[in-house]
Design a protein around this nucleic acid. Structure first.
Length: 672
DNA sequence: AGGCCTCGAGTTCC
DNA sequence: CTCGAGGCCT
């Protein structure tokens, strides 16, 4: 057996303590300072650690025990059948490992048949155990610690979808999940907001809390519902398979989720899990946090039996978590095209919302100080807007004393020369004292070739770096002097890719004035301002000879931006660059918006993703219809176009009473 | 001067 | 997507 390194032992201890503490918060006080997903992530790390060093497994480890303890106040109930908890799987390989375990155990038990599986959605709510005697509901209990739960019959009796009387007078103990619909949750929060009360974070917490109210009226006011899925005791013969079991529950008049599927092999179960991850999951009116996969045949289930913690024949296959925990391994600096330096956290790679994440921005010094992020810290990570990883909080209880606080350095090799760093006056940011380092120029050139500027296909940050390192490119105009032979001499370039890049450059020699302006990296000049300037001046020649005063008369431009533009133009190197670019490019005026489209004069804000078009295409559709797009919702927003997985803009729209339309309605309005 | 609103800048991964 | 700061209206 491998000797357990001291760090692993200490880490396991910290994990155990933290999981126990957060679980207690969660189950005993209906409150939590950590999301259930982040807690899952800690548990997963502990499971992996214990797998690697089995001697770390103690009998009181949270991996060996079931969460929850009965609370005082409610009647305690000893479960007739002990309540297990399911093992978790987080990816395909863990599911295949589960299948292997099942097959091996079945073979050992002398069963030759290949196992088939039943797949069901795992509803995110509160676990419940219902007892019926002669068809009448006599008891509803929470899981508690698995042996003793709490009697919540009074609350559960108020839930409409749970029958007080079954279709037949049978004795039955059945397990299921109580949940709150997403619509009901939204309504409840609306009411909270109107009453000036704090909003609830997620439906799951409210469900548990509502059930345990001693006053049943509280639960009655909240829109709770249930799905049942597992028979534990039955006065009639047990169904032979899990599918038949669900059918049997339906026949008795109990609510059963309609989305189960039969899987002939584990691959089909994995396909079911994949199918339910995206839009399908969003469409249902309840939260789903994964898929439960059970061996179909009851006979095989019996043969597999239980471990001390749960059944060997079933597993919870969780969806990719949107919040996980990981460790900050280092903090470094990054330089942007304007020379601004941004601290960057290097993380122990971890899967969040379906992709591996190794880095996250720390924005600036203030962010690091406010969150007190140190090198070595265990942190909670999530994706903002489903794309950009962000550190949400630090878990200080994981500190060992070896963590290092991070301070903004005085110099950086990223800044070239003497590398001095200065503070940007009046802001929290810091930047290189002298502009023009290799790194910064690389960012500038990549921006020139980027999507909002010249949009040159196949010319990303990596290629720019390569070209700079081989002294082929130093300034934007150098791109247009590249030859196919020069490219072919570079590592990584083949005939095809070289020809493609040359062609892409040729294609973009005809460029509109506003795009060129965006590409120049003039401070404060982005897409909108560039457009306003381009419309005002019309041609590059007119712009080149403009005076500072004239910039101020452009709508949307004030003193600060006018000064920045005039200052940029006054610089002799910049003038020379413009001169050279003028020789290569044919610069056209911006296209005038032709009025009269169906969205004339309307500002549209777009959030989420769509079936028929990308977000960029949606913006183009709005513009073509005479409308404007904006990135933030305000009272002046015409409507918000919301697709799948909308972000915070949807909330902003509701708050401000701005109308929200979906893809179908949007297409209809374009046609009108 | 204060308060919106809009825009720029930086942002991760494949 | 989020943050912060510039522009412009009141």
């Amino acid at each position: 057996m491998p000797r357990v390194p001291k760090e692993a032992r200490e880490r396991a201890k910290k994990l155990q303590d933290a999981i126990r503490a957060y679980r207690a918060e969660y189950h005993e006080r209906d409150a939590s300072s950590l999301s259930p997903e982040a807690l899952d992530s800690l548990k997963h790390e502990l499971v992996l650690l214990e797998k690697e060093y089995p001697e770390l497994v103690t009998s009181d480890s949270p991996t060996q025990t079931v969460a929850g303890k009965a609370l005082p106040g409610l009647k305690k109930v000893r479960h007739a059948v002990p309540q297990w908890s399911l093992d978790d799987a987080f990816d395909e390989s863990e599911m295949r490992a589960f299948d292997e375990r099942v097959r091996r155990a079945l073979a050992k038990a002398g069963v030759d048949e290949v196992p088939a599986y039943a797949c069901e959605l795992k509803i995110d709510g509160a676990h419940i155990i219902l007892t019926y005697e002669k068809g009448r509901l006599v008891q509803a209990a929470t899981r508690g610690d698995g042996i003793v739960g709490e009697d919540v019959t009074h609350s559960v009796s108020t839930i409409e979808s749970i029958p007080k009387e079954l279709a037949r007078p049978v004795d039955l103990i059945v397990e299921g999940e109580i949940y709150m619909s997403k619509k009901g949750f939204a309504k409840l929060n609306d009411a909270q907001a109107k009453a000036g009360k704090p909003l609830f974070a997620n439906p799951r917490n409210i469900v548990a809390g509502s059930l345990r109210q001693l006053d049943a009226r509280m639960a009655a006011e909240r829109p709770l519902a249930a799905f049942l899925y597992d028979i534990e005791r039955f006065s009639e013969p047990m169904p032979a398979t899990q599918s038949e079991e669900l059918a049997c529950l339906r026949a008795l008049g109990l609510p059963v989720n309609p989305n189960e599927a039969h899987a002939a092999a584990i691959g089909d179960a994995i396909a079911y899990w994949k199918r339910w991850q995206g839009a399908r999951r969003e469409k249902e009116d309840y939260l789903i946090d994964g898929v439960v996969v059970k061996v179909e045949s009851r006979e095989q289930q019996m043969a597999l039996g239980h471990t001390g913690k749960g059944p060997r024949y079933a597993i919870a296959f969780k969806f990719p978590a949107e919040q996980v925990t990981t460790v900050v391994e280092d903090i470094t600096l990054q330089v942007g095209r304007t020379g601004v330096l941004t601290p960057l956290a290097h993380l122990k790679p971890v899967a969040v919302a379906g992709t591996m994440v190794a880095r996250a921005t720390l924005h600036n010094e203030d962010f690091i100080r406010d969150k007190d992020i140190r090198i070595g810290d265990t942190v909670v990570l999530q994706k903002a807007g489903d794309i950009i990883p962000e550190i949400v909080q630090v878990l200080p209880e994981f500190r060992t004393g070896k963590e290092r606080a991070w301070k903004f350095p005085k110099t950086s090799p990223l800044c070239g020369g003497d590398g001095l760093i200065e503070r940007v006056p009046g802001t929290a940011a810091r930047r290189c004292a002298v502009a023009g380092s290799f790194e910064q120029q690389q960012r500038k050139l990549a921006h020139f070739a980027g999507k909002s500027a010249l949009d040159i296909d196949g010319l990303g940050a990596k290629t720019v770096k390569l070209l700079m390192e081989h002294d082929l490119v130093a300034n934007p105009d150098d791109f247009f002097e590249l030859t196919e032979d020069e490219l072919l001499a570079l590592p990584g370039f083949k005939e095809k890719s070289a020809a493609n890049l040359i062609k892409a450059l040729e294609d973009r020699k005809r460029v509109s004035l506003d795009r060129l302006l965006v590409g120049l990296s003039i401070p404060h000049v982005g897409e909108e301002t560039a457009r306003a300037i381009a419309v005002h001046f019309g041609t590059l020649a007119r712009l080149r000879d403009a005076e500072s005063k004239e910039f101020s008369s452009v709508p949307g431009i004030g003193d600060v931006v006018a000064e920045a533009c005039a200052g940029w133009l006054a610089d002799s190197e910049n003038r020379a660059l413009l001169e050279r670019l003028g020789e290569h490019l044919s610069v056209s005026a911006v296209e005038k918006e032709k009025g009269g489209g169906p969205l004339e004069g309307i500002t549209v804000v777009i959030t989420g993703s769509f079936e028929g078009f990308s977000r960029e295409e949606a913006e183009a559709l709005v513009r073509r219809a005479g409308g404007k797009t904006s990135s933030s919702v305000s009272k002046r927003t015409g409507f918000v176009l919301a697709g799948e997985k909308p972000g915070s803009k949807l909330d902003a729209a509701r708050e401000l009473g701005v109308s929200v339309i979906d893809e179908a309605e949007f297409v209809r309005r374009l046609g009108a």
